[in-house]
Amino acid sequence: MLNDFKQLLGEHGKDTKLNLSNLFANVDTSGLTPVQFYGTALSLAYSLEHKTLIEAVESEAKEHVEENVFAAAKLAATLMAMNNIYYRFVHLSSDKQFAKLPAGLRMNGMANPGVEKVDFELYSLAVSALNGCGLCIDSHVSVLVKSQMSATAIQAAIKLAAVLNAAKTAYVLEQA
């Protein structure tokens, strides 16, 4: 299904097609486990809210991961949709009184996301990068580094964010 999706990206999406092929064909050398790679890709696709892209990534992931990864990816996309807005505001506001206030936002799902916590942190990092929340990016990177995740693995998750975002853009432009 991902191959079908790539065909819909137009000539302007040529580099994006190549990057998608490279990322998905080289999971073994990415520094990520299949649960980390496909869970991250799913989290990003759900966050990008693009039906055709979601279907393509889900189709690829079904061959490699169990249903709990799909649920955890949806949880990461949903929680980061909330957290990235809130904490980006706290970070960017010149009025620092907001950083001293409790967030008061329910995030119970983070305590038991259905996958290893380090994997969920990776999903959350990639979505936070996609959403541009610097405070969240710093927090997730710190946890991942303390958990001994390699810089190469972290970079692979961010590459997924960049390329899937480009894929959505190329698709939208081709359909316009």
Rank of each mutant, 00 (worst) to 15 (best):
Y38F: 09
L122Y: 02
N19K: 07
L92V: 09
V172K: 02
L75M: 08
P34N: 11
A56F: 01
A161G: 06
V27F: 12
A151V: 13
V143D: 12
S47W: 03
L130V: 06
I158T: 00
F5L: 00
R106V: 14
L44I: 12
F37I: 04
L135P: 03
A77E: 01
E63M: 05
F89K: 04
N68G: 01
H50F: 00
T78S: 09
D119W: 06
M110T: 13
S124L: 12
A129C: 15
P102T: 08
S93C: 12
K168A: 01
Q155I: 14
L18K: 13
N19H: 08
Q155H: 15
D15W: 11
I158H: 00
C136N: 06
A129V: 13
E49G: 06
Q36R: 04
G132L: 10
V163D: 01
G104W: 04
V69C: 00
V57P: 00
G104Y: 04
H50P: 00
A157T: 11
R88N: 04
A111D: 14
A151W: 15
D15C: 14
L44G: 02
L75A: 08
N165S: 10
L9I: 06
I54E: 02
L122E: 11
A162P: 07
A77H: 01
A170G: 07
L23T: 11
G132E: 10
S43Y: 12
K74D: 13
K17D: 01
E174T: 03
I85L: 09
V172F: 04
A25D: 13
N3E: 14
E11T: 13
P113S: 07
H12E: 15
S47K: 05
S21V: 12
A45Y: 10
K62Q: 12
M80C: 04
A76S: 07
S93A: 13
F24R: 04
N19S: 08
A77S: 02
H50M: 00
M107S: 15
A76H: 03
A161D: 06
V115K: 07
K62T: 15
G134M: 09
K51T: 12
S142I: 12
V57C: 02
V127M: 07
I154A: 04
K6Q: 10
Q155E: 15
G39M: 05
L92S: 12
S94L: 15
A71V: 06
N19R: 03
H64R: 03
V118A: 15
Q7N: 13
L130R: 02
N112E: 14
D15Q: 15
E49H: 10
P34R: 06
I154L: 11
G132Y: 13
Y46R: 04
H64A: 01
T52D: 01
Q7Y: 09
I54V: 05
A61M: 07
M149Q: 06
L173A: 14
L105C: 08
I158V: 06
M80A: 06
K6D: 00
A25T: 12
G109F: 03
N83R: 06
K17F: 03
N165R: 07
P113W: 05
L135G: 11
N165A: 10
K146Q: 12
S150N: 07
Y86E: 08
L8P: 00
L44M: 11
A162S: 11
I54C: 02
T169R: 05
E58L: 01
E63Y: 09
V27Y: 09
E49K: 05
S128G: 05
L173T: 09
F98A: 11
A76E: 03
L173S: 13
A161I: 08
A71T: 09
V35A: 14
A176V: 14
S150I: 05
